[in-house]
């Protein structure tokens, strides 16, 4: 697509409640690239938790409440692979046969995951102003498989001269979050995040970066519970911090 002048920033409920700094950084990155950013007032949640739990009426009710605030024909930027995947791939399915199916498909077609948008549409160039650092990247399963944008985060980080990326064992394996899975299958999820944190810790990275706050909440919470580990951070916050706003 051609470079838009204005975009919606669809913050997601997890960013809203727990990681507002990640959301703000995403908005700042876009603004620094000369994009006007609208944080639409009516936004709440994409409906994914209920959709993945089988409660489709409830998912639909929540998803439908988003349509009005995303009505303008401008891109919808989502700082999360899984919420972006919900809007782009599952809304058309969820709204199928509903009176507002066309509106949902329209939003789906202009939805982008944040790193995807920064690379594919804006082709941003970032300067690195930070001290040398070694990081590991955890790509969320939704960003990797549903959205197919796993490499965008690496493209962006690759522009930062002082950042060395270390690769953990079984990089593509799920961290065990899975939304309500972490509650319904708590012990399995616990075993999975143990394996994931062990692999990440073993890299010696000082920081773990991801594009999904669900994974970060899981991995970061587990590090903390285990008595410490690399700091976890959303990619938007990391990029904003490293570039010091030097975005072209």
């Amino acid at each position: 697509m051609t470079r838009p002048s204005t975009v919606y920033f669809y913050a997601t409920c997890l960013v809203d409640l727990l990681y507002p700094r990640a959301g703000l950084a995403g908005m700042q990155l876009l603004r620094a690239a000369d994009i006007e950013v609208i944080l639409a007032r009516g936004q709440t949640c994409c409906g994914q938790p209920a959709f993945n739990s089988g409660y489709r009426d409830e998912a639909l009710a929540v998803a439908r409440a988003q349509l009005d605030c995303l009505a303008r024909d401008i891109p919808v930027i989502v700082p999360s692979g899984s919420c972006a995947g919900m809007l782009r791939h599952h809304w058309p399915e969820l709204f199928a046969g509903e009176p507002d199916a066309r509106r949902a498909r329209d939003v789906a077609a202009r939805t982008y995951e944040l790193t995807e948008f920064l690379v594919d549409v804006l082709a941003v160039r970032l300067d690195d102003v930070g001290e040398p650092i070694r990081i590991a990247i955890h790509t969320s399963c939704s960003a990797r498989r549903e959205m197919g944008v796993a490499d965008r985060i690496e493209t962006l980080v690759g522009q930062l001269a002082g950042v060395e990326v270390l690769t953990q064992d079984r990089k593509a394996e799920c961290c065990g979050f899975g939304g309500t899975f972490a509650v319904k299958q708590g012990d399995v999820s616990g075993a999975m995040v143990r394996d994931k944190t062990d692999a990440l810790r073993a890299t010696g990275a000082a920081r773990v970066i991801s594009q999904d706050c669900g994974c970060l909440m899981n991995i970061g919470g587990a590090f903390d519970h285990q008595g410490g580990g690399p700091r976890t951070q959303h990619i938007a916050e990391f990029l904003w911090e490293r570039s010091g706003g030097n975005v072209r």
């Binding site: 913050a11 960013v15 809203d16 409640l17 727990l18 990681y19 507002p20 700094r21 959301g23 703000l24 908005m27 700042q28 944080l39 972490a182 509650v183 708590g186 012990d187 999820s189 616990g190 995040v193 143990r194 909440m217 899981n218 919470g221 587990a222 903390d224 519970h225």
Partner: peptide, 23 residues
Amino acid sequence: AWTRYRSAPRPAARTLRELARDE
């Protein structure tokens, strides 16, 4: 089950909307 393996998440002190308005 969450806190058997992880610490509990805690809401941020200020909402994204408040932070965004300030900026």
